[in-house]
């Protein structure tokens, strides 16, 4: 064993080998094929890396499942505060009333209608336009994940109609357009219906 703990007999350092393992960068790549010291060093580092992966797998198994009680307890303690977003004014018979709904509740409505469409799961939803001004034209932008195998075009058309109806029923927003972007295909055939 060399006395200096990071320089090999060939002049290269263990730090260089360690870096090479992570990045593939080495000052003199050809040297690695011919130098037995460096090769031994790399072999040892690779064995360590394998042992590291095994330790991680073992620790991960010991950590349990995300559906177990420990996670339920943590989730129960989180007390996630709501994200109301912008305040959307509502009409009222009495001018003294000031009725509003939150942007967050409209986003939740869009998600809920979308999720109840077979094969579709809502992602991010954006209301574009000034929702705080009554009658402003608003565009709904919806990211959508579709379960593999579902007819995409048909469900997008039906979904746009359902969303339009729900928004007309539950809000007073002037919806100019509903833009749906399929961002993901879920590759998990699963019973649903």
């Amino acid at each position: 064993m060399s006395t200096s703990h990071d320089t090999l007999g060939c002049g290269h350092t263990l730090e260089e080998l360690s870096l090479y393992l992570d990045t593939g960068d080495f000052p003199d790549p050809g040297h690695l094929d011919s130098c037995p010291e460096c090769r031994n060093g790399l072999d040892s580092l690779r064995r360590l890396s394998t042992a590291g992966s095994e330790l991680f797998s073992s620790d991960l198994a010991d950590a349990g499942s995300g559906s177990d009680d420990w996670m339920k307890n943590i989730l129960a303690n989180l007390k996630l505060e709501l994200r109301p977003g912008r305040t959307i004014p509502l009409r009222s018979e009495d001018p003294l009333d000031r009725l509003t709904e939150t942007e967050g509740s409209v986003l939740a409505l869009v998600r809920s209608v979308t999720d109840s469409t077979p094969g579709a799961v809502a992602g991010k939803v954006r209301l574009e336009g000034d929702v705080t001004v009554p009658g402003e034209a608003i565009t709904v932008n919806l990211d959508l994940a579709v379960v593999f195998g579902h007819p995409l075009l048909g469900s997008a058309t039906a979904l746009r109609r359902d969303l339009g109806e729900a928004l007309a029923r539950h809000t007073e927003l002037n919806i100019a357009a509903i833009d749906i972007t399929i961002t993901d295909v879920i590759d998990a055939p699963r019973e649903e219906s």
Binding site: L107, A122, G123, K124, D143
Partner: peptide, 13 residues
């Protein structure tokens, strides 16, 4: 559902 979808929804509240 993929991470990006979940993260987008979670950011929406």
């Amino acid at each position: 559902v993929p991470d990006a979808i979940l993260a987008g929804r979670a950011a929406d509240g």
